[in-house]
Structures are given as C-alpha cells and as structure tokens.
Nucleic acid binder design. Sequence first.
DNA 1: CAACTATATTATCAAGCAGTAATATAGTTG
DNA 2: CAACTATATTACTGCTTGATAATATAGTTG
Lengths: 109, 109
Amino acid sequence: MLRREEMSDDALAMIANRFRVLADPMRLKILHTLGNAEMNVSELVEATRAGQANVSKHLGLMLDAEIVARRKEGLNSFYRISDESIFELCDLVCERLKKQFETRRSVLE
Amino acid sequence: MLRREEMSDDALAMIANRFRVLADPMRLKILHTLGNAEMNVSELVEATRAGQANVSKHLGLMLDAEIVARRKEGLNSFYRISDESIFELCDLVCERLKKQFETRRSVLE
DNA sequence: CAACTATATTATCAAGCAGTAATATAGTTG
DNA sequence: CAACTATATTACTGCTTGATAATATAGTTG
C-alpha cells in the first residue's frame, strides 16, 4: 500500500496521527490493561498507578481515535478495546525489536 | 503479546518509541519515497520538497532506529529501507482507517 | 590547495503534548 | 435537596520535537 500506491499528504497525516496515538507508554499500558476485559476508569487508574485526570485524558484521546469504546452506566464509564488491530501492530513491533536486539548481540560475539 | 504477557514499563517505552518514529508525516513520506529504490539525500530532498537539513535529520533518526540503512559513496549517502515490517504496519493502519470511514459514512445514510 | 558539492550537525524558535491540580458535570444516596 | 462519588474538562507548566538557518565536515575537481 504505502509502497505501491501514491500517497497524498492527507493520507500520510492520518496514518502518522494513528501512530502518534500509540506512541505513548501510558496509553500502551492502558491498552495492555484493557486487553482482556472491559474496565471502568477507577480500575484503570489503580492498575496503571497514574492520576485520574491523566487516565481520563488518554482515554478520551483513544476514544476519539476509535481505538477504545465507552459504555456509560450510572456514574461509571466502562472502556474496552474497539480496534483489535492495535495488538497486531504491537506484535509486529515487538518481533522487530527482538530481531534487532538479537542482531546487535550477535555482533558483539 | 501485548494482550497476553505481562509488559514491563521498559518494554512499553521501547514499543512507544518505535511508534513515535512512524508518527510523523514527513518521515512516512520519506519511507514511502524510499519504498522501491535506494536514493541519496538530494533525490529525497527533491522528491519530498523539504529542506535538506530537515531530510537529513529525519534520516538520521530513522537510521538510529534501524528503519533505514545507509551506504556512503563519495560525497553521497544512499539510503534504503532496512525494516520492511513498517509497510505491514502502515497497511494495517490504512485498512483500519478505511473501515472507520466506511462505518462513519454508513451511519450517515 | 582552493573552490565546490553533498551531507551532517548545531543552535534556535515555535508548536504540541504529557502530567497535574483545580474545577465542572452528572449521577447516586441518605 | 445536600453530601457524596465517578468521570470529564480546563488551565497551566515543563519538556520534547519539527523546521530552518547557519555552520561544520568531508569528499571531489580543477
């Protein structure tokens, strides 16, 4: 796709934007925590040991990006992953990082 | 991976860092331009219509991240993609973005 | 070696963003 | 309805980073 077709600047900006959402350790931590189950904000605050405002802001950002979905129930907001493809993205990155470390290590031997 | 195993903060930081490299339209443009062929800096400057210092800095960043590789020949530096997995990443993001737009569009009908 | 060329680096500025405290909103319970 | 609770928003601060101009580095050519 990126390699074969022409890419408009707008398309590039949208793709970059999506990567930007994933380019933050705290958001990845939230996503990782959310991986298995729907959770409310308080649970996420406890699990990540971050401030409530901070967690809410990250969740809002990811909600806008449609990476998570929200279900409101009384005072609580329950969040869940709505874009499962992020796990594929993370897996790809992980594999690649492992390969790089492997290469570097073998260079030293 | 991200979903199943425990993730250290260091691991999350490394993954986030990799996404950060891809979270910039100009870098994506350079990667896209480099997609098919090895090119030197001048060619990339012309193709992207960006400043020379800017292109060099982005290339340096991606070289450090081992996303591109460099071959020096006389005055020229030739760059090429060294991490093909970035195209898979971009493809995944593209597909997902298309789905989102499709969903939004159908909501309006 | 002097002039030239390609690339890299540095300094600087402006913009964007993560974290936090304070406050607002809105639902709940006595 | 008053006190309480969960979440969202706002204002602010410090840090990071992208773009650019200026300069440095290093190879080339006459």
